[in-house]
Structures are given as structure tokens and as C-alpha cells.
């Protein structure tokens, strides 16, 4: 099954060290789970780019197919799919997220 959004997603996650596919945008998240990931990234002062899947139905379906993950938000670090809200929250609380960002040489607090 071809994925019309694949080229764009591949470019996004390659060109942006931290890429977040979400509902809404960083200033106006439109879903509690998306807002949680944004607040974690802001708290850690991590520079990140977002894409609003609510504005692009092709992207909304394409991102789920790309990662074999049925929901949004989806966080990518250096092209690698990290997880959705629950995994990112768990990693933040355990310190794993900070370790990962350090390993990937991404500035954070």
C-alpha cells in the first residue's frame, strides 16, 4: 500500500532533529495528549518543529501508516520514532528522554 505522505514525512524527520506530529500547533494544541508532549518539550527547552495533522488529512493517515502507530501525537528524534504521549511522558519521568536527547546531541535542560 503506497503512502502519499511518505516523501514529505521522510524529509521532515530528516531535516528536523526533533519533529512532532500533533493536533494543533505548539502555541495552540488541540488535544490533551498533544499538549502534554508540547509541555514536556518546552519544559526541557528542546527546539522542535511541529506539523498539524488536523490541517492535512493525507498527512494524518500517512503518519499512522509510516510508523505503524494508530494515534497522534507522534514524536521523532533524529529520524527515529520515539512514541506517543504515554511513552514520551514515561521517558520524561524516568529521565530516559534526557538521556536520549544527550546521546543524540540535542540541546536541552
Amino acid at each position: 500500500m503506497t503512502n502519499p505522505a511518505e516523501t514529505r514525512i521522510t524529509a521532515d524527520i530528516t531535516e528536523n532533529a526533533v519533529m512532532l506530529y500533533m493536533k494543533g500547533n505548539a502555541l495552540m494544541p488541540q488535544c490533551g495528549f498533544s499538549a502534554r508532549v508540547v509541555s514536556i518539550l518546552n519544559h526541557m527547552k528542546v527546539p522542535f518543529k511541529t506539523a498539524n495533522v488536523l490541517e492535512d488529512p493525507v498527512l494524518r493517515e500517512g503518519i499512522k501508516q509510516f510508523s505503524n502507530w494508530p494515534t497522534v501525537p507522534q514524536l521523532y528524534v533524529k529520524g527515529e520514532f520515539i512514541g506517543g504521549c504515554d511513552i514520551v511522558s514515561e521517558m520524561f519521568q524516568s529521565g530516559e528522554l534526557a538521556t536520549l536527547l544527550t546521546e543524540k546531541e540535542i540541546p536541552h535542560e
Partner: peptide, 18 residues
């Protein structure tokens, strides 16, 4: 991995999640 574990659970729902 945690992602794989979650994907296994999501697969159990045969497309209903989301």
C-alpha cells in the same frame, strides 16, 4: 522495546484504536 510492545497491543485491537 516499549514502542514494539505498544504496537503489539494496538494490533490486538484490529484497527479500532484511533
Amino acid at each position: 522495546s516499549r514502542v514494539q510492545q505498544h504496537q503489539m497491543v494496538y494490533a490486538a485491537f484490529k484497527g479500532h484504536v484511533g
